[in-house]
Design a protein around this nucleic acid. Structure first.
Lengths: 215, 215, 215, 215
DNA sequence: CATGAATGAGAATTCATTCAT
DNA sequence: TATGAATGAATTCTCATTCAT
């Protein structure tokens, strides 16, 4: 079966090549401006070849979508070493923002862009699945918050609400930036606003939260 | 001049019909998938007819874009009667969320969709203008925050940062919903999350904020 | 019948207004870039109005076509005072070139542009008529040549051939210029070439012609 | 490599098929009335297919344009064997007329039709190039004339003027015919006029020219 | 007489996708 | 496995022309 395995390996590599190239192009030129042809040209294969590895364009996008979540989850792991849950929560937010701003097209795909509808419909049966991967990250956040609760914070708040609130907060920050609603401010000030907002969150939504309860 | 006026009225109504239809279709099929043809079919006119009322596709989108901001500003006026600035700020957020969720297509266009680039480029001279209309609403928020500051809140925070933070927060909430990243939760729970998040914001970012300073 | 006459007069004036405007626009922007709408806008009438005065676009063009020939004929009359037929022939050529270069769009329409086919087909019965107006000018040239012959020139040449040759010569000059096949030379040199060519013609095709015979 | 070669051959043939068809249609319907659709229909392919062989409509026209000049140059080579420069000049004219009348669509494109502007603009850098190919033929004519001068003709005439004059002369002849300004005369007489005009030119512009100087 | 409103037909071009080889 | 060739179905947009008023 050595041959079979090699074949499979090659297949995977080809898929990876296509996905990476697609992502690179999306990043360079924006999503709507990329065609299958562009991707094919870049990897120096014919457009038809791509169809040997992916059913259609949607499948490529859908796969990237999943990959994005894998990557995000990997980034989330990085904060595990931080022991203090409140500190970790702050780092969590910081990390999320970095992930988004460093991988804007992934982020766009994962949290902003309207999902590739056809594909999703086909997947209806496995619809739960569709969100599994996103839920995993959300649950990870909830865990973090639960630990903060044990440490005395968010005492009167539903864990889901707290998680959603924090998520919305950072998502708001990065999605306004990615979708260019902050361009008036200029790059420099945007950096300040991001930093300022994270600090604001730390003081008011995290730290202050606990102090209040301690009294 | 009755005739002339009637004609003008009819013209306006036709424009409105086109705009409304466009909006409806945007809502149904998503922005990128709408074509002039679709709109024409829906209103049972020929595609060419639309060009009698709008220069091109961009103009339709641009007009909707502006209309959205006008409408938002009108909503913002509604909270002016609320005297207490902190209370007003809370209402501000609540109103923003309602505006977004009740006019998701407008909101999408205003704050999520990638901007119609050509039109913007043509408008280069009036480029400032492009954001004026958005800035007006942002300034309105800043005013509210300044008054909160006078009332003792946000004392150590830059007004811009505070405004951006609050904006990001509510934008995060609504854009996750509009772009269907909360569908797993189900409608009912989404309502709870929104309500919960607004309360969370009120306690931590607004009220708590001022208490701290008072001590 | 005063009223009827006035009406007719007004009708004529309107036709003239349309024709003049059309021509002006053709001159400004070139033939293929003008639409009925452009013309209508310029005269501040609706496009539909034009159809009250002309059956269709072709009729406008066809009429201008005829007008061009009327104008050319008028220019031709100007050389009648020149008594010496050879001198007159030279002036004839010179005049033709001026007419063409000063009214390039008329000239284009009359001698270069493919005729408006539909209109011509309709006119088939009167097809002779189609060329009448052009023939008149050609005959005028032939007369001039006949007189030159009487004065001893073109002795061995068929009058038609001579006329055609001279016509072709000047037409060649102006049509190469009008259709921009001389742009490489630059404006200044074009002027020299035209002047030089006319002189060359005078010496070789006219004067020299007679001298030869005189010997 | 037999396969590869065959493929290339087929590609070339397809290009040729498209070009030929385009030319045929141009001839039938006139230049401005040809669309890619027409061409596609004629060759029974889809419009999209044409885009596999040519970037756009302009490229087709531009290619035909160049091809025309190549062909003309080839025709010009045919007269080289004629040793006597005056005789050769006459043959030159004769050949030019034949080229034009036997390839009226090419000729039209090369010397009558308004140039495909977009394409030319794109080619700005190589703008000189645009006329190179035409200049080559014009220079070829000038060489011929210079030799005639050495043989005693055109003594008092600038070589450029002489070349332009002769060019204009034959261009006048053929362009009046191609653009149907001689149809009144009927085919038979047109042939006579052409022949007559060429003779007229030979006697007056070439031969007579030299005699004069000899005296 | 004049026109506002409407449109059918058609233009160039693009792109995801298919299929025979 | 890979692809060259082909295309159907779109897209935006333009224009001469018609017709009810």
């Amino acid at each position: 079966m050595g041959i079979k395995e090699r074949k499979e390996l090659e297949k995977k590599e080809m898929r990876k090549l296509i996905l990476d190239t697609a992502m690179k192009l999306f990043l360079e030129k924006g999503f709507e401006n990329i065609t299958l042809r562009n991707i094919a040209e870049k990897i120096e294969y014919s457009p038809a070849t791509i169809y040997l590895y992916f059913k259609d364009k949607d499948e490529i996008i859908y796969t990237l979508h999943r990959e994005g979540f894998e990557e995000l989850y990997r980034w989330q792991q990085k904060i595990l070493p931080v022991k203090d849950p409140l500190e970790r929560l702050y780092r969590h937010a910081e990390m999320y923002v970095s992930f988004a701003l460093e991988n804007p097209e992934y982020y766009d795909l994962m949290f902003i862009k309207r999902a590739p509808i056809n594909r999703i419909k086909e997947m209806k049966l496995k619809d739960g699945m569709r969100w599994d991967i996103g839920m995993r990250s959300f649950d990870f956040l909830k865990e973090n918050i639960k630990e903060c609760m044990k440490a005395g914070a968010f005492r009167n708040t539903d864990v889901c609400v707290a998680a959603f609130s924090l998520w919305a907060y950072v998502h708001g920050i990065v999605s306004l930036i990615i979708r260019e609603r902050c361009d008036v401010f200029g790059e420099e000030q945007i950096r300040c606003l991001v930093k300022g907002s994270l600090d604001f969150m730390q003081q008011n939504m995290i730290v202050n939260n606990i102090k209040k309860e301690e009294q």
